[in-house]
Design a binder for these strands. Structure first.
Lengths: 362, 362
DNA sequence: AATATCAGCTTAAACGTTTAAGTAGAATTG
DNA sequence: CAATTCTACTTAAACGTTTAAGCTGATATT
């Protein structure tokens, strides 16, 4: 069918319409300075030829590509899908398109990708994989490139805009929940301390413990890396403690580790929540499954992505204006499911009764 | 710090090096025709100025942007993360960057986005959300734009390259597994019949039933849309059938629906696998959880993404050559977990024991 | 020694837009 | 009616590359 594959250009339209390319450009961009009839004619011809402006050429001249990069740790990070959905919603609404750049939380790669953003033609970047004290990010921000940090942030980067969750509050309410249910020996599986989320979610929990006069015992606080395996290992370890030192509840600083913990408890034949309570963080999709039902701290990831993207575009599009800092801190909410007891009480009693039955009627 | 934000260009380098821009271009691209000393000098100056070629300008002249689009239904589709990981691996290795375009499986939007790909400057597209008989896709392929279909395909689109899973075989082995475990009344939760996956996974299962002489009963075959809620609804419905018509096993054409089914069985207090066996499809992350452990059909999503991306780039980069069709069909494997019995045996023994009990202690 | 070949450069056009500056003619003004 | 302002255009430069074609002087060929 198609012989020559060159697409229709501004010039093609201008020739057919007997006007200069400049005029066509004015028409296509709805700018004034063109007579009504001419405008109409050009529009019709453009329509007929199915003319579409070449965005690459346009980018070159006005230095805007309408391309936004999203730096993430991995597409498999369970936060990513919803975050990206929010970002995509906002971008689509304003005519931008989204590129994703997974970095695997590899510092080198992240630095390289950050440095490459500008000359690759991106208009701005949303980064969700920021580690604390990221020099390259620093440089990028200082150079005036539009950057929005989401989920995590870098305290050391003064001019970095962000929209994050209040991790301290989140950690606080998670821990408070466990304490109020009567737990005194509480295990904590930390996140990496090079991330703001890792730091804050721990800090909040420790605050709650302090407020309620509960001793935080060192052997119950374990390092984790936000991946499920580290949660599994941490629990396997904790549970080796002598019974009176072992936890009756565990707070994992994210859901992945909570799921790992859940699996470990399962393997150890420890009943959740009857024997050990568990609370996670992020309200990731898995936690909502009926057979998992992990109590967790929820945050609106879609909203977070949307706000970040929307404001990033604001920044990009308001050229001259003094750029004032943008910092949003969303509020966490506790989602109470089944891993912390209470609702399980009924079931627990039921089983006790069954056991009695068996003894009485063997 | 930074006053003027214009980045370093080829010209800046050429001026400092006292050569023409053309020479710098040759050097930067490692092309011949430049003397050793000159080359060295240019390289050093470029290095010193931190010169990076402007990819937008480059794209404009050689018509290649090194941008690949990936059309997906949603970032929340559980297949997406791994698929994208594979794609990203291949793209990164060859210097391309990935844009994702969620379409929500909305036909209009998908058509629009497909049509826009070329003038947005993409070099090619990987589509995983293709519905059957997609006119716009047809047009795009016929126009010679590099397209690779992954996961799903469109039978009606003759020149569409693809890398997919053998869905028929997958459906077959899933169903065969249930049959071999002794099930005769098997419920099926279908996928949408406008997708190749929906069609094939059903067809394969029906073949297996036919091969083993098992009647497929209409009320046990329910429509689904690949989302969890439809699996839930299907099971709720099926289980309302009179006991002798209700299924002892269920085959869901994807894991999302299997999870929905799992939840429904949970709510109905029907034990899996003791009372009803369940098999899913895709080997999605959730199914591997210890407390879920759904038996499912596995496919290597990362590999699938990688192959698709890799070959797409091959197509893009071999300009002239006759483009011959590329079609890969990966082999499915059954991942046996805990939702299909084997405990069937346990149940059998248990019932025998109960009967004995009743006789002895009436 | 005249000619061909070649390495090592430069020139200039091209890619498809946008936009500042220019122009011709019509309309408005004093 | 001459001067001014507008309107509706056009011209041409610019964005930052690539690349075909051209040029120059040196080396190789006959």
């Amino acid at each position: 069918m198609s012989s020559k594959n060159r697409s229709v250009t501004l010039k093609d339209v201008s020739k057919l319409a007997n006007v200069s390319p400049a005029t066509v450009s004015l028409v296509m961009n709805g700018k004034p300075g063109v007579g009504a009839e001419t405008r109409e004619r050009v529009l019709q011809i453009a329509e007929a030829l199915e003319y579409r402006p070449n965005l690459v050429a346009r980018s070159l001249v006005n230095g805007r590509s309408k391309l936004i990069a999203m730096l993430i740790s991995s597409t498999r990070n369970p936060m990513f899908p919803e975050l990206a959905e929010g970002v995509d919603q906002a971008l689509k609404a304003r005519g931008y398109t989204l590129s994703i750049i997974p970095t695997g939380d590899d510092e080198k790669l992240e630095a390289r990708e950050l440095g490459a953003l500008r000359y690759r033609g991106f208009d701005g970047v949303i980064t969700s994989s920021t580690l604390i004290n990221n020099r390259e990010l620093h440089k990028l921000v200082e150079s005036g490139f539009p950057v929005m940090s989401v989920l995590r942030r870098d305290y050391s980067c003064k001019n970095l805009d962000y929209v994050v969750l209040d991790g301290i509050k989140g950690g606080y309410i998670a821990m408070e929940h466990l304490i109020r249910l009567g737990h005194q020996q509480i295990g904590i599986i930390k996140g990496p301390q090079e991330t703001s989320t890792g730091i804050e979610r721990l800090k909040g929990a420790l605050w709650a413990m302090a407020d309620y006069g509960i001793q935080a015992s060192d052997p119950l606080i374990r390092g984790g890396d936000f991946f499920s395996a580290s949660g599994y290992a941490a629990v396997m370890d904790m549970m080796r403690l002598p019974p009176r030192e072992s936890p009756s509840a565990i707070y994992a600083c994210n859901d992945d580790m909570a799921v790992g913990a859940f699996d470990a408890l399962w393997d150890l034949n420890i009943k959740v929540p009857e024997d050990v309570a568990l609370v996670g963080f992020n309200n990731t999709a898995v936690t909502a499954l009926k057979s998992v039902a992990i109590t967790t701290v929820s945050l609106n990831k879609i909203e977070m992505g949307r706000q970040a993207a929307d404001h990033l575009i604001d920044i990009i599009e308001q050229e001259g204006g003094e750029r004032q800092p943008f910092a949003v801190m969303l509020k966490p909410e506790l989602v109470i499911r089944k891993t912390c007891g209470f609702s399980q009480m009924g079931r627990y009693l039921l089983e006790k009764i069954k056991e009695e039955d068996k003894r009485i009627f063997p």
